[in-house]
Each structure stands twice: as structure tokens, then as C-alpha cells.
Simulated scan of single mutants.
Amino acid sequence: MSQLTHLDSQGHAHMVDVSEKDITTRVARAEAFVEMLPTTLALITHGKHKKGDVLAVARIAGIQAAKKCSDLIPLCHPLMLSKVSVELTPELELNRVRIDTMCKLNGRTGVEMEALCAASTAALTLYDMCKAVDRGMTITGLRVMEKQGGKSGHWVADASVVGNA
């Protein structure tokens, strides 16, 4: 494994200087899951939740989180994202909602943290909106699924890892 880039030679945390990196198109995809009772999932999918469209609110929260990532993660660079998508898909047979996010830009640093922030915040928002009817929900499987661009090129996660049923 290579040296940790956010630590200097004395072990002090610092923001990495990316000014010499090439500007490339960078894309990252992340996923997370919110597992819940079948009755909770039915409320969401049938539009019967008293707080309204849970999936729409979670989608907007995820998009907003990607845009605010550098405010939350101390050493992340503020980025000019050109695209953020958050898709929430009910998986009825597994009693869960799958959250897929994608962040894209033309820049000098990757967007993995923004994709992860989007997925985790969408999951937290879903939990927040549904906790009154299902306190036992769990958020699982948060991970980067794919990244493209930059010197390290294209990387795809192992599809056999937990989270993919």
C-alpha cells in the first residue's frame, strides 16, 4: 500500500496540494442500503407515509450532501461538481432500499468522498423520515463501487462483496 497522502513526514494531517495534477474527467459511484420492516417499505413504496415522498426527500438530501462534502470532511477539497445523481430503488424481496449515487466533474481530484457523502446522507434521511414507524432499520453496505479518472485510472469494486444480493 502506498503512503498516506494526507499526512506529512511528521505525521501531521494536511490538505493535499493537487495544483500540479492533470485536469481529467472524474467519476465515482457509491452505494448503501437501508434495511427495514416490510410494512415500512410498503408505506414508502405506496406513498402512504405521513411525511410525504420519502424517496424524493432522501434524493435531494443526498445531492445536497455531495455539494457540501468539503464542509463535512476536513481534508476534502471544495469541488465544482458537474453532475450528481442519487437513485433510491426499493428491493421488496430484501426489505430494503438500495441507494446508488454518482458524482462527476472535470478536475484535479477525485469525487469518491462526494459519492459516499451522497449515499450516506440519503440513507440517514430515509432513516430520519421513517424512524417513528421503524426504529430497527439498519444502514449497511456503504462503499465506493467505481471510480474513473486521474492517474490511477478506472477501478471497479468486487461485485461479490456484501451488499450485493
Rank of each mutant, 00 (worst) to 15 (best):
T5R: 01
D17P: 01
G47D: 11
A61I: 07
V57S: 03
L72S: 11
L72F: 12
R59K: 13
Q10N: 15
T39G: 12
L126D: 06
A66G: 04
C69E: 01
V34L: 14
N164H: 15
H6R: 04
S70K: 06
C76E: 13
A165W: 12
A28L: 05
G149Q: 01
S70V: 08
S85C: 10
G110C: 06
L75F: 12
M113G: 02
G52Q: 03
D53Y: 09
K67M: 04
G141K: 01
M1K: 11
M137D: 01
L43F: 04
T121W: 01
G62H: 03
Y127A: 05
S152T: 15
K68D: 15
Y127W: 13
N164F: 15
C69T: 14
F33A: 07
A56G: 11
M36P: 13
A42C: 10
I139R: 07
D134N: 09
P78E: 11
K51F: 08
S85F: 05
Q64G: 07
S82H: 09
S85G: 11
I139L: 14
H49Y: 07
R143D: 00
H77Q: 05
I139E: 03
K50C: 07
V34N: 04
V34D: 06
H49M: 01
D17I: 05
M145W: 01
Q10R: 08
S19A: 09
A122S: 09
V34Q: 11
D158Y: 09
C69W: 03
M36W: 00
T25H: 15
D17Q: 07
A118C: 06
A58V: 00
T89R: 07
P74N: 13
M1S: 15
L94K: 05
S160N: 13
A58D: 02
V86Q: 03
I73T: 04
A157T: 07
K83Y: 11
A115F: 02
M145F: 00
G107S: 11
L7V: 13
V27C: 03
K131I: 08
M80L: 14
E31D: 07
